[in-house]
Simulated assay, not measured.
Amino acid sequence: MTAYNCLSDLELLDLVKSDNESAFAEIYERYFGVLYLHAYHRLHDQDEAKDLIQELFTYLWSTRRVLEPKTNFSNYLYTWVRNRVLNVIAHKQVQEKYLSTLPPLDSSVESLTDHRLRERQLAAIIEREVALLPPKMREVFMMSRKANLSYKDIGAQLNLSEQTVRSHVKNALKILKARLGILFYLFIIFYK
């Protein structure tokens, strides 16, 4: 069994090139903390710093077979992080400059738009779940909820007993409650 923590960076890199995940894990353990601190010190955002370092390790793994650092490996990693941090900062500056040129938004319009977007998303989720119901149950359920027909009217149209219609609607609600979880209660409000 190889003691990966005793190997040099270049030895680990050679093993990583041959798809050795344990060697990669050692590089990750060796450098994640210090690279994270390096990125965080410049970005002052924990999530952004973690994302950047995760991106680095994803990049390292995906390019492992062709990876040939021109300097020593730690310098290569620090340089990669520094360049990415500079890119992030430059992007933020461009973004801030652009946003400062936009006219201020009316917050009531923004919240109304946000509310409508969430309502459409909720409706799409509900429609998708209703579409997954068994055909007859879906038909009965839609007639009950969308067309607002009584159980008696639905039964007459589909040649079903009122009790069968009631059972279809009850079972549909039970299935939807299980699938939608907390969204089910919003569904009740939405489909009233």
Rank of each mutant, 00 (worst) to 15 (best):
E129N: 14
N171V: 11
L35N: 03
L12G: 00
L133G: 06
N5Y: 10
T101Q: 13
E119L: 14
A3E: 08
N148G: 10
K170W: 05
A147E: 14
S18L: 06
L122D: 03
K97M: 12
L149S: 02
Q54G: 10
R138F: 02
L149V: 03
Q163P: 00
P69N: 08
S22A: 15
F32G: 05
T164Q: 01
M1E: 07
D14H: 14
V140L: 02
V94N: 14
I125M: 11
E110N: 05
H44W: 04
G33Y: 04
I125N: 05
Y191M: 15
E162Q: 13
Q157A: 09
I89T: 11
V109T: 15
F24N: 03
L99C: 07
F73A: 14
V94K: 14
E68K: 15
V66Y: 08
A156L: 09
A3T: 07
E11C: 10
S74D: 09
F184Q: 02
N87I: 09
E11S: 12
P103K: 06
E119T: 07
A90Q: 13
H91A: 12
N75D: 12
E11G: 00
T79L: 02
L13C: 07
A172W: 02
E110P: 00
I125Q: 10
L102D: 08
L112Y: 09
L160F: 08
S74P: 10
S107W: 06
F190N: 15
R128D: 10
S62P: 00
L149E: 05
F73T: 15
Y76R: 11
L176Q: 06
K17L: 01
A131W: 02
L56I: 14
H41M: 03
E127L: 10
Y4R: 01
A39M: 01
A156E: 03
R120A: 13
A39V: 00
L43S: 04
R42N: 08
E26W: 00
K174S: 14
E139Q: 04
L7V: 03
K70M: 11
S107K: 11
T58A: 12
L117G: 12
K170V: 04
Y40E: 04
Y98V: 01
Y31N: 06
S62N: 11
R82L: 12
M142D: 04
E139L: 07
A90Y: 10
S167F: 07
W80N: 05
V130L: 14
N148I: 11
S161R: 14
E119Y: 09
V66Q: 13
N72W: 15
L12T: 09
V88M: 08
I53D: 03
A156T: 09
K152F: 03
E139V: 00
Y151G: 00
E96H: 08
F57L: 13
Q93W: 00
R120Y: 04
L149G: 01
V81W: 00
N20D: 15
D45V: 06
A39K: 00
N171H: 12
E119V: 03
D114H: 10
V81C: 05
D153R: 11
K152G: 01
Y78W: 11
Y78F: 15
S62T: 07
V85C: 09
L158Q: 00
H91V: 01
Q121R: 13
R118D: 13
V81G: 02
K50Y: 09
R138G: 05
A23G: 03
T58Q: 13
R82V: 08
L122M: 08
L77H: 03
L99K: 08
L15F: 06
L132W: 11
K152T: 12
F187R: 02
L13K: 02
L13G: 01
P135K: 05
Q93C: 01
